[in-house]
């Protein structure tokens, strides 16, 4: 990788605004994600964190503001545009098809093809299975076979497969929306291990979570949002208790680092 792109943030959002009818969901939010960084994103319900990530993943088109990927200004009109730019979203409700096996899910919508015959394309199943297996190995995800149907996996394994899929196609930015919500303790550990492994391999990740201890344990930096604005943006430091206390103070509005920059 050349050094010029390395010094530029991998993703940058500047003054993003988005309204739904009378509701201002995002009131001018800035966000920077550096290469190889895990950025935690927290906030109460309706703080705007999911809306912000939907803007970055192409699901919402912002009313105002700019998005730059590796320094280049981009326009996205749907999630496929974002995906072509290397932005992958791991959805909270797990966009997996339970009736298909792991390989089929990893390659869903991007199947490898052996031969084309008009509108009919023959699947290259062996190649896909091999690649899927390599992918799980690389992320140290321990699942007995890529031929297992997703419906037979545990919650953590499903989340791991969803994350593996997001990393399968040279993605630049991986956004995870509550990857540890509604999981057992063992499954949470599995998912966090996968995130750590991704980080070691240099992936750039934005992690939305309600679980402050998860953010603390894997993130480099943290952004707190409240009522459609960014109120806090700092590196993760100190002990978990200090960290939690500080984050909560910002979440409930007791503290705000950016309030004097914008009054409305």
């Amino acid at each position: 990788m050349d050094t010029v792109t390395d010094t530029k943030p991998v993703a940058e959002m500047v003054n993003i605004r988005k309204s739904f009818a009378a509701v201002q969901a995002l009131k001018g939010v800035d966000l920077v994600l550096h290469h190889g960084e895990v950025l935690g994103l927290v906030g109460d319900n309706a703080a705007g964190k999911s809306s912000l990530m939907k803007v970055l993943s192409g699901a919402y088109i912002p009313d105002d503001g700019e998005i730059r990927i590796e320094g280049n200004k981009v326009h996205m009109s749907d999630p496929l545009d974002a995906r072509h730019l290397g932005i992958e979203m791991v959805y909270q409700d797990l966009a997996l098809a339970d009736n298909l096996d792991i390989t089929s899910n990893v390659f869903l919508g991007r199947e490898l093809v052996k031969t084309h015959l008009g509108p009919i394309s023959a699947l290259d199943s062996r190649h896909m299975e091999r690649e899927a297996k390599r992918l799980l190995d690389r992320l140290k995800i321990d699942i007995p076979s890529v031929r297992l149907l997703v419906e037979r996996l545990s919650g953590g394994q499903r989340q791991a497969v969803a994350i593996a899929r997001a990393t399968a196609f040279n993605s630049k930015v991986i956004i995870m929306d509550e990857p540890t919500a509604a999981l057992s303790v063992a499954s949470i550990k599995l998912v966090l291990d996968v995130i750590r492994e991704l980080k070691v391999q240099g992936a750039s990740i934005i992690l939305i979570s309600h679980r402050i201890e998860d953010i603390y344990s894997v993130s480099d930096r943290l952004i707190v949002m409240r009522q459609g604005r960014k109120v806090h943006d700092v590196p993760v430091t100190g002990t978990l208790d200090e960290f939690r206390e500080e984050v909560v103070a910002y979440m409930i509005g007791a503290r705000d680092d950016f309030s004097n920059l914008e009054k409305n």
């Binding site: 098809a97 869903l108 394309s121």
Partner: peptide, 10 residues
């Protein structure tokens, strides 16, 4: 064996 079939089941 085809992409279309896979998509139908998806």
């Amino acid at each position: 064996k085809t992409v279309i079939g896979r998509h139908i089941f998806a």
